[in-house]
């Protein structure tokens, strides 16, 4: 029997490595679910799982947009602050429209349109400053992060913006409502992830996003409008933030200076845990979904046990995040 050729052998082992790497976040997720079940049987009850997944939807949806940006080799630190600012503006708009006697559906619709317009616009401003202004994404979005955070504080007079209770009653089911037990935020998260996967893996735009992050110069020589691709990615991120805000506002009906604090880091962490490369050029949408769920599960499991001192919560979180990424790196470097 002839020996398999060297090249064929190399190709098959490369494929196996790629497979392991792609499965990394899901292996970590499965391990975490087992851990949760061991810690407290309550963990596996549908009520608890639905709660956690619903909570994941905000940062999860934002992380889908973040996957595009990180794949182009960029980063967006402003998403948490933008979410807070957009929530504030949405509440102000809806509070202003309510006394006009408009039907509640129209009030929520107009509020939502305002949020979408604001979020996409803000994303595009980030994108323009990066592509036209030729400033590093880290610096641009660090700047806008401060600007948006400050604007929501100003709009709220340093306090809290609260949604008119009448509209809130109408709007509340968007967060709390469900179809066959699955809440709307979970459904929206799933749909956004599916669309993200189709766009990234099955469209020309998706391939250009990956090519831009893999090697910008080569992409440019291949007649890809690199700046336009980046701009679109930041616009897309804005759209995702807008959607997250649409789902977030009905939960507590308020926005303040502490809204969305740290969401940017959570979203970036979800993307990286999911296996997308920080330096760009390789995207894993479903990995991002797993990453976002992993982060939310860690919080949940820690809340479900009294065995670990609360002073150590962040240490446990840090360890699990690092282990989750190690699982993949290990799988990748194995010969």
């Amino acid at each position: 029997m002839p020996e398999p050729s060297h090249a064929a052998h190399r190709a098959s082992s490369a494929r196996r490595r790629a497979d392991l790497k792609a499965f990394g976040p899901f292996i970590a997720l499965a391990a975490l679910i087992v851990l949760g079940a061991v810690v407290n049987p309550v963990f596996l009850t549908p009520g608890n799982l639905i709660n956690v997944l619903t909570r994941t939807a905000f940062t999860g949806i934002i992380a889908i947009g973040g996957t595009f940006i990180i794949t182009t080799g960029g980063i967006d630190l402003s998403v948490g602050s933008l979410a807070a600012f957009a929530s504030g503006i949405m509440i102000i708009v809806m509070n202003a429209l309510t006394p006009q006697g408009l039907p509640p559906f129209l009030v929520v619709l107009l509020g939502t349109l305002a949020v979408m317009a604001l979020s996409v616009f803000s994303g595009l401003v980030n994108g323009l400053l990066i592509t036209r202004g030729r400033i590093e994404p880290f610096i641009v979005t660090l700047g806008t992060m401060g600007i948006f955070r400050s604007l929501v504080t100003y709009a709220a007079n340093g306090g809290t913006l609260s949604l008119n209770t009448q509209i809130r009653g109408y709007y509340r089911p968007v967060y709390y409502g469900d179809i066959l037990g699955i809440t709307y935020p979970i459904l929206v998260f799933a749909v956004v992830a599916a669309i993200g996967a189709i766009v990234l893996y099955r469209t020309r735009f998706g391939r250009y996003v990956t090519a831009t992050g893999a090697n910008e110069e080569v992409a440019r020589y291949s007649a890809i409008h690199v700046d336009r691709i980046k701009l679109a990615a930041y616009g897309l991120q804005g759209l995702c933030v807008g959607l997250a805000v649409f789902l977030y506002v009905p939960r507590l009906g308020s926005a303040s200076a502490t809204t969305g604090l740290g969401w940017e880091l959570e979203a970036i962490a979800a993307v990286i845990i999911g296996g997308t490369l920080m330096k760009g050029g390789s995207a894993r949408i479903w990995g991002t979904v797993a990453g976002a769920i992993i982060l939310a599960l860690i919080d949940n499991i820690l809340n479900l046990t009294g065995a670990i001192s609360v002073y150590l919560n962040s240490a446990i979180q840090g360890c699990i995040i690092i282990i989750a990424v190690l699982v993949q790196r290990d799988a990748k470097s194995r010969p």
Binding site: T258, N303, G306
Partner: peptide
């Protein structure tokens, strides 16, 4: 029964309490 940090923050209060209620 237990005590957890909620960081003087509405969202964290919501999250921690959901888990307490489940538990």
């Amino acid at each position: 029964l237990d005590s957890k940090y909620a960081n003087w923050n509405r969202d964290d209060g919501f999250k921690v309490m959901q888990d307490f209620l489940a538990r």
